[in-house]
Design a binder for these strands. Structure first.
Length: 412
RNA sequence: CGGGCUGUGGUGUACCGGCAACACGCAUCGUUCGGGACGAUGAGACAGAGGGUUCAAUUCCCUCCAGCCCGACCA
């Protein structure tokens, strides 16, 4: 991708109406655009990051047997009526001039919908267990959208639902999902705490959240500095300085961002929507369910909150919009063009700053802001050695390498 | 939903009861070219919307709308 052709441009100033780091940096660098409070367009650069995150999620969820599908945003009243959730004041009900009485809501979750679908296909214990998921837009009428893309009114979510013959099988899968979640977050550069939490409108029992410690986070987590055990303040009896109930380590208190959660739903939804199977003896049993969510936009925001410096974003390699940022300086344009073509041919995901009228300083500052982890600079200076300068985003100075050798290294 | 603050070219700001200024960005020309370089010229806002006070409103008052922050709420 040539930077001169990119749809967006960077901005030198922070937007006046954004206080959170994630929104300031993502907007300045051209990853997102705010249309309304809590409603952000994901621009080409941001969409690349979201796609990287989505690919990692798909890999890990597919690996635990998740089958991807897509449910629709419009959810008929009868689904939420079945569980008494139609009147929860979080959805956007859809009305029209001809139909002032709403009969649809823009889905803020899909337990009811997926449960009814599953009831059509699950009949026997032989059909279980199963797990399906989607990456889809959710709508929530947040009383107060805040913190940039960390709490929006419309956002992309991965929601996974699992179906089991009994509680034991659910818990087994729950553990698998937990491990998959740890992998997903770790691969995306996020250190998460597996946090005991309440169930909200989803289930009466306890649930688990994956919390990233960060000052902007709106949750408060008590966590063990030694073993990583954690509880959400909402339900916790712990306080800072206590001893960890598991290992005796010291409990710390910190604000945190909930990037994911997993819920043992039990039979609440299967009973409400008639999802049952025949066991080995032919007796009808309710299916035991779990649900598992990850907010993709919120993850992107959390990554930026964690990985930045005073110059801009520092993307973890796995989720960076491009693998390398190639910069051509004055006097090296034609050589840089050739090198760019070679990188493309070698299959390297490269962002190429070919802008003729930008100064070196502008290019470097933009590169720092956009935050691609590996930078290549070609200038008259580097060409004296038939070379290119390689610099990691977090390094102060780079080193010169031969162009061909650089392609070899990058294509590995 | 309650409270506070804010709303001025594309962006960030200033001024002010007398028909709007500066920086950045943008356009053209020239000089530059390894950390947002310089000079010249130029385009671009009827000041969130509506109403009121006044000879006169971007400025004062009211209403509404929008945004941010705090709180309440909250997969």
């Amino acid at each position: 991708m040539r930077q001169s052709k990119l749809f967006t441009k960077t901005s030198k100033e922070n937007p006046k109406d954004e206080q959170s780091k994630n929104a300031q940096l993502l907007e300045r660098a051209g990853f997102i655009y705010k249309n309304s409070a809590g409603i952000y367009t994901i621009l080409p650069l941001g969409w690349r990051v979201i796609q990287k995150i989505a690919a990692i999620i798909r890999e890990e969820i597919n690996a635990i047997g998740g089958q991807e599908m897509l449910m629709q945003a419009m959810v008929d009243k009868h689904y939420l009526k079945a569980t008494g959730r139609w009147d929860i004041d979080i959805g956007f009900k859809i009305i029209t001039a001809k139909n002032p009485e709403p009969s649809f809501v823009l889905g803020w979750t899909h337990e009811e919908v997926v449960t009814e679908i599953a009831a059509r296909f699950i009949n026997s214990y032989r059909d279980l267990p199963l797990a399906v998921y989607q990456i889809q837009t959710k709508f929530r009428n947040e009383a107060r959208a805040k913190s940039g893309i960390l709490r929006g009114r419309e956002f992309l979510m991965k929601d996974l639902y699992s179906f089991h013959a009994d509680e034991r099988d659910l818990l087994e899968y729950y553990e698998k999902a937990k491990q998959a979640y740890f992998k997903i977050f770790e691969r995306c550069g996020l250190r998460t705490y597996y946090t005991l939490a309440g169930g909200g409108d989803f289930t009466a029992g306890n649930t688990h959240e994956f919390q990233v410690l960060a000052p902007v986070g709106e949750d408060v987590t008590y966590y063990c500095e030694k073993c990583g055990y954690a509880e959400n303040k909402e339900i916790s009896k712990l306080k800072a300085g206590d001893k960890c109930p598991g290992c005796g380590g010291k409990i710390g208190e910190a604000n945190s961002i909930e990037v994911g959660n997993i819920f043992p739903l039990g039979t609440k939804y299967s009973e409400a929507l008639g999802l049952a199977y025949a066991d080995e003896k032919g007796n009808r049993q309710p299916v035991v369910m779990g649900s598992y969510g990850i907010g993709l936009g919120r993850m992107m925001g959390a990554i930026v909150e964690i990985h930045n410096d005073d110059k801009g974003i520092i993307w973890p390699e796995a989720v960076a919009p491009f693998k390398v940022h190639l910069i051509a300086l004055e006097g090296a344009e034609s050589e840089a063009d050739k090198f760019y073509d070679k990188l493309i041919k070698a299959g390297i995901d490269v962002f190429y700053d070919d802008r003729a009228y930008a100064t070196a300083g502008e290019k470097f500052n933009d590169a720092d802001l956009i935050g691609i982890p590996c930078r290549l600079v070609i200038s008259k200076k580097t060409l004296e050695n038939d070379g290119v300068e390689i610099k990691k985003r977090f390094d102060k100075i780079g080193e010169i390498a031969k162009m061909d050798a650089t392609i070899d290294i990058l294509s590995k």
